[in-house]
Simulated assay, not measured.
Amino acid sequence: MVFKRLLGALGVGGPTVDTVLAGPGVFPGGTVHGQVNLVGGEREAVVNGVALCLAARVEVEYEDGEGHRTQEFGRVEVCGPLRLGAKEQRVVPFAFPVPWETPLTAVGGQRLAGMALGVRTDVDIAGQLDRGDTDPLEVEPLPVQRRVLEALDALGFRFHRADLEAGHIRGTGQVLPFYQEIEYRAAPRFADRCNEVEVSFVTGPHRVEVVLEFDKRGLFHGGDSVRTFVLDHAAGEHDLTGTVDGWVRGVLGH
Protein backbone atom coordinates (compact mmCIF):
# COMPACT_ATOMS: atom_id res chain seq x y z
CA MET A 1 0.00 0.00 0.00
CA VAL A 2 1.20 3.53 -0.81
CA PHE A 3 -0.03 6.59 1.06
CA LYS A 4 1.14 9.88 -0.51
CA ARG A 5 0.51 13.47 0.46
CA LEU A 6 1.89 16.99 0.17
CA LEU A 7 3.46 18.27 3.36
CA GLY A 8 1.33 21.27 4.22
CA ALA A 9 3.89 22.98 6.44
CA LEU A 10 5.60 24.57 3.43
CA GLY A 11 2.54 24.90 1.23
CA VAL A 12 2.46 24.63 -2.56
CA GLY A 13 5.82 23.60 -3.95
CA GLY A 14 6.85 21.94 -0.73
CA PRO A 15 8.09 18.37 -0.28
CA THR A 16 5.92 15.26 -0.42
CA VAL A 17 5.96 12.06 1.61
CA ASP A 18 4.91 8.52 0.67
CA THR A 19 4.48 5.80 3.29
CA VAL A 20 4.81 2.37 1.67
CA LEU A 21 3.91 -0.76 3.64
CA ALA A 22 5.51 -4.04 2.58
CA GLY A 23 2.21 -5.84 3.25
CA PRO A 24 -1.35 -4.85 4.14
CA GLY A 25 -1.59 -6.68 7.45
CA VAL A 26 0.08 -7.70 10.69
CA PHE A 27 -0.53 -9.74 13.85
CA PRO A 28 -0.50 -8.37 17.41
CA GLY A 29 3.08 -8.35 18.63
CA GLY A 30 4.33 -8.44 15.04
CA THR A 31 6.23 -5.94 12.93
CA VAL A 32 5.13 -3.71 10.06
CA HIS A 33 7.86 -3.29 7.47
CA GLY A 34 8.03 -0.59 4.85
CA GLN A 35 9.62 2.68 3.87
CA VAL A 36 8.94 6.40 3.98
CA ASN A 37 9.80 8.16 0.70
CA LEU A 38 10.57 11.87 0.98
CA VAL A 39 10.77 13.98 -2.17
CA GLY A 40 12.03 17.56 -2.01
CA GLY A 41 9.98 20.44 -3.27
CA GLU A 42 11.05 23.56 -5.08
CA ARG A 43 13.49 24.59 -2.34
CA GLU A 44 15.52 23.02 0.44
CA ALA A 45 13.62 22.06 3.59
CA VAL A 46 14.71 21.09 7.08
CA VAL A 47 13.06 17.88 8.31
CA ASN A 48 13.46 17.58 12.08
CA GLY A 49 12.10 14.03 12.23
CA VAL A 50 9.63 11.47 10.93
CA ALA A 51 7.51 9.29 13.23
CA LEU A 52 4.96 6.54 12.75
CA CYS A 53 2.19 5.70 15.17
CA LEU A 54 -0.96 3.65 15.38
CA ALA A 55 -4.16 5.60 15.90
CA ALA A 56 -7.62 4.26 16.71
CA ARG A 57 -11.12 5.56 17.36
CA VAL A 58 -11.96 4.95 21.00
CA GLU A 59 -15.30 5.33 22.77
CA VAL A 60 -15.15 7.53 25.86
CA GLU A 61 -17.75 8.03 28.58
CA TYR A 62 -18.33 11.59 29.77
CA GLU A 63 -20.56 12.94 32.51
CA ASP A 64 -23.19 13.99 29.97
CA GLY A 65 -22.95 10.98 27.66
CA GLU A 66 -20.62 9.12 25.33
CA GLY A 67 -18.29 10.28 22.59
CA HIS A 68 -15.24 9.27 20.59
CA ARG A 69 -11.63 10.38 20.45
CA THR A 70 -8.59 9.40 18.42
CA GLN A 71 -6.13 7.51 20.61
CA GLU A 72 -2.50 7.36 19.52
CA PHE A 73 -0.35 4.42 20.62
CA GLY A 74 2.77 2.49 19.62
CA ARG A 75 4.61 5.59 18.42
CA VAL A 76 8.16 5.17 17.02
CA GLU A 77 10.66 7.61 15.52
CA VAL A 78 11.89 6.38 12.14
CA CYS A 79 14.07 9.29 11.08
CA GLY A 80 16.10 12.01 12.79
CA PRO A 81 16.97 15.51 11.53
CA LEU A 82 17.97 15.93 7.89
CA ARG A 83 18.12 18.53 5.14
CA LEU A 84 16.04 17.69 2.09
CA GLY A 85 17.31 19.46 -1.00
CA ALA A 86 15.15 20.69 -3.84
CA LYS A 87 13.80 17.68 -5.76
CA GLU A 88 16.01 15.37 -3.66
CA GLN A 89 14.68 11.86 -2.97
CA ARG A 90 15.26 10.13 0.36
CA VAL A 91 14.17 6.62 1.29
CA VAL A 92 13.79 5.83 5.00
CA PRO A 93 13.17 2.09 5.65
CA PHE A 94 11.41 1.12 8.87
CA ALA A 95 10.45 -1.89 10.97
CA PHE A 96 7.53 -0.77 13.13
CA PRO A 97 6.78 -3.04 16.13
CA VAL A 98 3.08 -3.48 16.84
CA PRO A 99 2.07 -3.75 20.53
CA TRP A 100 0.79 -7.13 21.72
CA GLU A 101 -2.50 -5.52 22.80
CA THR A 102 -3.17 -4.00 19.37
CA PRO A 103 -6.89 -4.53 18.61
CA LEU A 104 -8.03 -6.80 15.82
CA THR A 105 -9.52 -5.20 12.74
CA ALA A 106 -10.15 -8.29 10.59
CA VAL A 107 -10.66 -12.04 10.89
CA GLY A 108 -9.95 -14.21 7.87
CA GLY A 109 -9.73 -11.14 5.67
CA GLN A 110 -13.18 -9.90 6.74
CA ARG A 111 -13.09 -6.51 8.44
CA LEU A 112 -14.72 -6.26 11.86
CA ALA A 113 -17.62 -3.82 11.74
CA GLY A 114 -17.10 -0.87 14.05
CA MET A 115 -13.29 -0.80 13.97
CA ALA A 116 -11.25 2.21 12.84
CA LEU A 117 -7.50 1.76 13.27
CA GLY A 118 -4.51 2.56 11.14
CA VAL A 119 -0.99 3.90 10.66
CA ARG A 120 -0.27 7.63 10.71
CA THR A 121 2.91 9.31 9.47
CA ASP A 122 3.92 12.51 11.30
CA VAL A 123 6.62 14.74 9.83
CA ASP A 124 8.24 17.58 11.76
CA ILE A 125 9.26 20.00 9.03
CA ALA A 126 10.47 23.56 9.49
CA GLY A 127 9.49 23.33 13.16
CA GLN A 128 5.87 22.47 12.37
CA LEU A 129 4.31 19.05 12.92
CA ASP A 130 2.50 17.82 9.83
CA ARG A 131 0.10 15.06 10.91
CA GLY A 132 -0.98 12.72 8.16
CA ASP A 133 -4.24 10.87 7.70
CA THR A 134 -4.70 7.53 9.44
CA ASP A 135 -4.30 4.88 6.76
CA PRO A 136 -6.09 1.58 7.54
CA LEU A 137 -4.05 -1.36 8.84
CA GLU A 138 -5.36 -4.92 8.82
CA VAL A 139 -4.67 -6.61 12.17
CA GLU A 140 -5.50 -10.32 12.07
CA PRO A 141 -5.79 -12.50 15.22
CA LEU A 142 -2.96 -14.60 16.57
CA PRO A 143 -3.61 -18.36 16.37
CA VAL A 144 -4.85 -18.60 19.98
CA GLN A 145 -7.16 -15.60 19.53
CA ARG A 146 -8.50 -17.05 16.29
CA ARG A 147 -9.20 -20.39 18.01
CA VAL A 148 -11.29 -18.67 20.68
CA LEU A 149 -13.32 -16.78 18.08
CA GLU A 150 -13.77 -19.94 16.00
CA ALA A 151 -15.01 -21.75 19.11
CA LEU A 152 -17.68 -19.09 19.72
CA ASP A 153 -18.80 -19.45 16.11
CA ALA A 154 -18.92 -23.25 16.46
CA LEU A 155 -21.05 -22.92 19.60
CA GLY A 156 -23.61 -20.81 17.75
CA PHE A 157 -22.64 -17.32 18.89
CA ARG A 158 -22.84 -14.79 16.08
CA PHE A 159 -20.53 -11.80 15.61
CA HIS A 160 -22.32 -8.45 15.83
CA ARG A 161 -19.74 -5.67 16.04
CA ALA A 162 -16.52 -4.53 17.69
CA ASP A 163 -15.38 -1.32 19.33
CA LEU A 164 -12.71 0.15 21.57
CA GLU A 165 -13.46 1.39 25.09
CA ALA A 166 -11.32 3.83 27.05
CA GLY A 167 -10.25 2.49 30.44
CA HIS A 168 -8.79 -0.67 31.95
CA ILE A 169 -10.17 -4.13 32.61
CA ARG A 170 -9.81 -4.73 36.32
CA GLY A 171 -7.61 -7.62 37.39
CA THR A 172 -5.76 -8.00 34.10
CA GLY A 173 -2.27 -7.07 32.94
CA GLN A 174 -3.58 -4.52 30.45
CA VAL A 175 -1.05 -1.85 29.42
CA LEU A 176 -2.80 0.25 26.77
CA PRO A 177 -5.30 2.91 27.97
CA PHE A 178 -8.16 1.22 26.11
CA TYR A 179 -9.41 -2.28 25.29
CA GLN A 180 -11.35 -3.96 22.52
CA GLU A 181 -14.78 -5.52 22.90
CA ILE A 182 -15.84 -8.03 20.24
CA GLU A 183 -19.56 -8.46 20.63
CA TYR A 184 -21.44 -11.68 19.85
CA ARG A 185 -25.17 -12.36 19.96
CA ALA A 186 -26.04 -15.30 22.20
CA ALA A 187 -26.18 -18.81 20.78
CA PRO A 188 -29.78 -20.10 20.60
CA ARG A 189 -29.21 -22.71 23.32
CA PHE A 190 -28.03 -20.00 25.73
CA ALA A 191 -30.55 -17.33 24.71
CA ASP A 192 -32.69 -17.91 27.81
CA ARG A 193 -29.70 -17.08 30.03
CA CYS A 194 -27.73 -14.53 28.03
CA ASN A 195 -28.41 -11.74 25.53
CA GLU A 196 -24.86 -11.39 24.27
CA VAL A 197 -21.22 -11.94 25.17
CA GLU A 198 -18.36 -9.50 24.70
CA VAL A 199 -14.83 -10.86 24.23
CA SER A 200 -11.69 -8.91 25.12
CA PHE A 201 -8.12 -10.10 24.67
CA VAL A 202 -5.32 -8.83 26.92
CA THR A 203 -2.37 -10.27 25.05
CA GLY A 204 1.30 -10.52 25.99
CA PRO A 205 4.33 -12.34 24.64
CA HIS A 206 3.69 -15.48 26.72
CA ARG A 207 -0.05 -15.67 27.35
CA VAL A 208 -3.46 -14.28 26.48
CA GLU A 209 -6.08 -13.26 29.03
CA VAL A 210 -9.52 -13.90 27.55
CA VAL A 211 -12.16 -11.73 29.21
CA LEU A 212 -15.78 -12.75 28.64
CA GLU A 213 -18.58 -10.41 29.70
CA PHE A 214 -22.05 -11.97 29.60
CA ASP A 215 -24.96 -9.56 29.32
CA LYS A 216 -27.98 -10.86 31.22
CA ARG A 217 -29.97 -7.63 31.30
CA GLY A 218 -33.67 -8.13 30.89
CA LEU A 219 -33.41 -11.81 31.76
CA PHE A 220 -34.38 -13.62 34.96
CA HIS A 221 -30.81 -13.60 36.28
CA GLY A 222 -30.23 -9.89 35.55
CA GLY A 223 -26.96 -7.96 35.40
CA ASP A 224 -23.61 -8.81 33.83
CA SER A 225 -21.11 -11.54 34.60
CA VAL A 226 -17.42 -11.05 33.83
CA ARG A 227 -14.87 -13.85 33.85
CA THR A 228 -11.19 -13.93 32.86
CA PHE A 229 -9.51 -17.07 31.52
CA VAL A 230 -5.84 -17.53 30.66
CA LEU A 231 -4.33 -19.38 27.71
CA ASP A 232 -0.75 -19.69 26.52
CA HIS A 233 0.08 -19.21 22.87
CA ALA A 234 0.57 -22.96 22.36
CA ALA A 235 -3.20 -23.34 22.83
CA GLY A 236 -3.54 -21.92 19.32
CA GLU A 237 -2.42 -25.29 17.99
CA HIS A 238 -5.62 -26.97 19.20
CA ASP A 239 -9.38 -26.79 18.73
CA LEU A 240 -10.68 -24.81 21.72
CA THR A 241 -14.39 -25.42 21.22
CA GLY A 242 -14.64 -27.74 24.24
CA THR A 243 -12.64 -25.34 26.39
CA VAL A 244 -14.76 -22.32 25.51
CA ASP A 245 -17.95 -24.37 25.91
CA GLY A 246 -16.80 -25.22 29.43
CA TRP A 247 -16.20 -21.54 30.18
CA VAL A 248 -19.65 -20.56 28.98
CA ARG A 249 -21.43 -23.35 30.84
CA GLY A 250 -19.47 -22.55 33.97
CA VAL A 251 -20.80 -18.99 33.94
CA LEU A 252 -24.34 -19.57 32.63
CA GLY A 253 -24.98 -22.99 34.15
CA HIS A 254 -25.81 -26.25 32.42
Rank of each mutant, 00 (worst) to 15 (best):
D135V: 00
E140T: 06
G127R: 04
Q110K: 10
P177E: 10
L117I: 05
G109W: 04
G167N: 10
D133P: 03
R120A: 03
L142I: 08
D163Q: 13
R146N: 14
R161S: 15
R161M: 12
R161I: 12
V175L: 15
L176P: 07
D135I: 02
P141F: 04
P177G: 10
F157Y: 15
F178G: 02
L129A: 07
L164S: 09
G108V: 14
V139N: 01
Q180A: 11
A154W: 04
A151H: 03
L142Q: 13
A116T: 00
G167Q: 13
G118C: 00
E140L: 06
F178I: 04
G127Q: 04
G171P: 10
L142P: 09
D130T: 04
I125F: 06
D130M: 07
P143C: 05
G173T: 13
V119D: 00
F159H: 12
V119S: 00
R170Y: 14
V123T: 13
V119I: 14
V139Q: 04
A126W: 01
V123L: 05
R170A: 15
R131S: 11
L164K: 10
F178E: 01
P177H: 10
L149N: 08
Y179K: 06
L142G: 00
R161W: 11
R146W: 08
I125C: 07
V144L: 07
A116L: 00
L142M: 11
T121Y: 08
V175E: 13
A162G: 08
L155I: 14
D133S: 06
L112Q: 03
H160D: 11
P136G: 00
E150I: 14
V139L: 07
D163Y: 15
